[in-house]
Design a protein around this nucleic acid. Structure first.
Lengths: 198, 198
DNA sequence: TCAGAAAGAGCACGATCGGTCACTTTCTGT
DNA sequence: ACAGAAAGTGACCGATCGTGCTCTTTCTGA
């Protein structure tokens, strides 16, 4: 049972890599099998169906995102430091970790938004968790804490800038994308900190 | 030659509709043919290949975007009014015009960003044109005109909010998405107008 | 009106898709 | 060491993919 777990991980990693390039639906079981050195039917000893594999991919990628972006920032002393670090790591995630195919989470979001089913549901749950985490951080940015509405506003803009960075970087080929995003986000933090409580 | 043009348009419209749902690559010629009441081989009297059809789709959708978002705002008296109207129409485009499948331009961007070829090139050209149009509008927002850097900053944030709106609306199911986007954008216009020239 | 072109139908192709089944090899717990 | 489970193979299935071919129907310009 030990050996199986190892190949299972190799399969998911490879499948996630391919999914970041072409999308979840376009992942070919034959290609994945060949890349990890298995026969196509060998894959089915690890996954009951392609949908089961897609679930594992989404699970793997979203957990990896948390490890990559949240874990190193989690224990910084102030909310401002945490948020700055998170955004910086988020940019790294988008253009270092997934330099080749682009952020898979954004790709999955666009691909799945109108395709109901367990895969979309899992993605949604994970994105909601992440949103909750960020809202909590924004609330701690000021004393007294930001209202729900203020935190929502800040969250919306933060996520927008992360999306904008990806768009500018990957489709528009904008070399300044990261600087623009970082500047916009720091200005957002300034505005949000300074905003006078009601 | 008249009749052919009419069905050609019906084909592109239907193909664009399907592409907004599942992506360009996932458009099935068989499905398109059936939807417009043709045989699959009949399609090839209008398009040499699937790639040729994808080019038509991108062409059609991007021109339609300009008609929908830019044309009605083009002749408003002030840059502020034009930009406000553009953003409002942009939101309409995203959640009225393409209510079912989501904005195809964003979907194509994510799908094509790492797939070199004439289809991606066409999309990039059209997106660059649109960026230029918006930059010009931002420059006219203030007297003396905004610098290139200032206009770039404003453009980056505008596009980010449009992307953020789509993300919030479609994947996160956020009913307040449009309000958040609109508020963020109006605040951006305020900041940009007020910013003191160097 | 009538010939030639355009539009479209029907069929078949090779490739690839996700998936099954019977079988063999390899590992692992006792 | 050995039995049983886990891991992996190879051949094959029906469906669907984009595309080419031949043939017929329909339109249109002179």
């Amino acid at each position: 049972m030990r050996k199986g777990e190892a190949t299972r991980i190799r399969i998911v990693e490879e499948a996630a890599r391919q999914a970041s390039l072409r999308g979840l639906a376009a992942v070919s079981l034959a290609d994945v099998a060949e890349a990890v050195g298995l026969s196509k039917s060998g894959l089915f000893k690890h996954f009951d169906s392609k949908e089961a594999m897609e679930l594992e991919i989404v699970d793997y990628v979203t957990l990896l995102f948390t490890e990559f972006v949240w874990r190193p920032a989690e224990h910084l002393p102030t909310a401002r430091e945490r948020l700055s670090r998170i955004f910086d790591l988020w940019m790294d995630w988008e253009d270092k970790k997934w330099a080749q195919g682009g952020c898979p989470i954004m790709a999955f979001s666009v691909e799945l938004d109108d395709q109901p089913g367990p895969v979309r549901d899992l993605l949604q749950r994970r994105l909601q968790q992440w949103k909750k985490t960020l809202l909590r951080q924004f609330q701690q940015l000021r004393e007294p804490p930001l209202s729900d509405v203020e935190a929502q506003t800040a969250y919306f803009q933060m996520k927008s800038f992360a999306l904008g960075h990806l768009d500018a970087r990957r489709i528009m080929g904008d070399a300044d994308a990261r600087r623009s995003a970082q500047a916009a986000f720091e200005a957002l933090l300034d505005r949000t900190e300074r905003a006078s409580p009601p």
